[in-house]
Design a binder for these strands. Structure first.
Length: 144
DNA sequence: TAAAAACCGCGGG
DNA sequence: CCCGCGGTTTTTA
């Protein structure tokens, strides 16, 4: 299995992707670009294409662990919509803080759209910066 | 290793 | 403001 790495810009950030075919192993937001480009679908998503990432799978959703169930629940949240940590927790059969832990540890943001999971009384957190989450949500709100 | 404590991108009282 | 929650990570022995 051949693994590729590349990035595409998103605002002041660069979306770094590690993937093999349609399976994504890692997505990270860094301030510097990679040497090679990310898959065109990621560039299109960053430009506002709502369905650009629909063909990708995440390694995070594989298996039958609690986190994998949470990631599958989150992946089902449609573009332009949000769910609270508590709602995701209820659907996955666990508690809200566990969902927060899982989001923080999410190896593949965007593919597993953790930015669509918000706190009941606020936006919630994001790694590396909640500004990225805010930018993603407002982009999806404009398009969605 | 194994057990305990600490840690949280939360929520309800 | 505080406390329960529960999976994971870190600390301690």
């Amino acid at each position: 299995m051949v693994v590729a790495r590349g990035s595409c810009p998103f605002g002041l950030w660069h979306v770094h992707v590690v993937w093999s075919g349609d399976l994504v192993m890692q997505v990270r937001f860094l301030r510097v670009p990679a040497e090679r480009p990310a898959p065109p679908a990621f560039r299109r998503y960053c430009a506002g294409d709502r369905d650009a990432l629909s063909g990708f799978l995440s390694v995070a959703t594989e298996g039958d662990t609690t986190y994998a169930r949470i990631y599958r629940t989150v992946q089902a949240i449609p573009y332009g919509r949000t769910a609270t940590y508590g709602e995701v927790a209820a659907a996955a059969g666990t508690g809200p803080r566990v969902v927060g832990n899982a989001m923080r540890a999410n190896p593949t943001p965007l593919v597993v759209p953790c930015h669509r999971v918000v706190a009941k009384g606020g936006i919630g957190g994001f790694t590396p910066s909640v500004e990225v989450k805010q930018a993603l949500l407002s982009m999806e709100a404009r398009r969605g």
